[in-house]
Design a protein around this nucleic acid. Structure first.
Lengths: 220, 220
DNA sequence: GCCAACCTACCGGGCGGTCGGTAGACTACT
DNA sequence: AGTAGTCTACCGACCGCCCGGTAGGTTGGC
């Protein structure tokens, strides 16, 4: 029964896909499950079952649970490099560049948040060397945004905002999308991306007439 | 040796504290470790060792790992209710109320982010009933912010921003603080709170002269 | 003598990971 | 055409370890 089902599924999969992207299917499934349950709460058996293999069978394709995690995070970081950082680097005007960063990052998340969310939530599951690698790449990304904010400050468009704090805050706003955005929700992906991008730009650009509403009790 | 050390530590602790806030010390330690390593990666032994007990000794005070987590999250949610929501409810003016929410929530995080961070990161470690409880209280909080944004929209201070998206985005910005803020960093807690509050308000308030910098390549 | 506040020793179970296979497709040689 | 060998893609069974949790003490202060 189960053997037959598995054989049937495998036949379909083989027909649909090429032949050796079975490994890709494993990474995709693992990312989905890590995203849903968390790295530590996910067992190798969970992943094996999700791709129709036994645990031992799965180990034919992967080296271990930690390598699986590192590979997923590396993939996510590559996505960020290729789909966000590189395109944004080609935009000269700082404000347009910032819009590119936010919009592209947000769009990646609305399209498939698994790997990108794991990237920020499961750092402590990595081996020290791997963690250092990923953290370094993440810091580069934040620095890139901070540099863009510094350029806006030099243009006079941003006043009184620490570029690093600004960069972190924007990143937080963007990453949080994966926690509340639902594909079948009231707004579609493009609307969410547009709304968040508008907020992000508005958050950093100075407005000449800004004044606090004042808050008498906010002193203790 | 170890027994002596433990006894010494206990003596000091007993002298310093009252008598039955040993339980509070356990919750505080557990929150700190859950925050650092994550719930699933933390063993009962880790917590026991941190408070100078054996595992069995720890079970004299707690009912189980899951109850410990739920208690911590409940405590964090209580903090949010008492230190953020209730004070903000007493502020009538919508903009001042939003400033109160952001500033107070951000300040809680810069002061001690453990419980509040666990509150958002370890939901899937809870039993279904407990999870439903916490999620409900979290939703109430987001709705409270969204209502405040809706009030600002009615005043004409916010234009074209979906209150729910706005609320989620602000929450994301605030929660992310716990990931980058360091007590010994360049900026102190008050500066961070002020900067984030200013950004949050600026993010939602409309500016008459806003125009996108335009982004030709951002169409595919 | 009693009770709060612990301890040592243990339990069943699930974990990541490995070992020794083997069915079957595909070649290689006769 | 037959058959021996080889390699890919898996599986069942197992390992040692550590987990959350418990049973049954022991001890020291009242």
């Amino acid at each position: 029964m189960t053997a037959l089902d598995n054989a049937a599924l495998r036949a379909v999969a083989t027909a649909a896909n090429g032949e050796q992207d079975r490994r890709a299917e494993i990474y995709r499934s693992a990312a989905r499950i890590f995203h849903r349950k968390g790295y530590h709460a996910t067992s190798i058996n969970d992943i094996a079952a999700a791709v129709g293999l036994t645990k031992a069978g799965l180990y034919y394709y992967i080296k271990g649970k930690q390598d699986l995690l590192f590979a997923i995070m590396g993939f996510a970081m590559d996505q960020l490099d290729e789909q966000v950082i590189e395109p944004a680097r080609r935009v000269q005007d700082p404000q347009a560049r910032l819009e590119t960063i936010v919009a592209r990052h947000a769009r990646l998340i609305t399209q498939d948040s698994s790997a990108l969310t794991i990237l920020v939530n499961e750092l402590e599951g990595l081996l020290p060397d791997d963690r250092a690698d990923i953290i370094g790449r993440q810091r580069d990304y934040v620095d890139f945004i901070a540099d863009t904010l510094a350029a806006l400050r030099d243009e006079g468009k941003v006043v009184g905002l620490d570029p690093t704090v600004g960069a972190f805050s924007l990143v937080g706003m963007i990453l949080w999308i994966s926690r509340w955005y639902r594909t079948d929700g009231r707004l579609d992906g493009d609307e969410v991306v547009a709304a968040v991008t508008r907020m992000a730009i508005s958050a950093v650009l100075s407005r000449g007439d800004y004044t606090s509403a004042g808050n008498p009790e906010e002193t203790g």
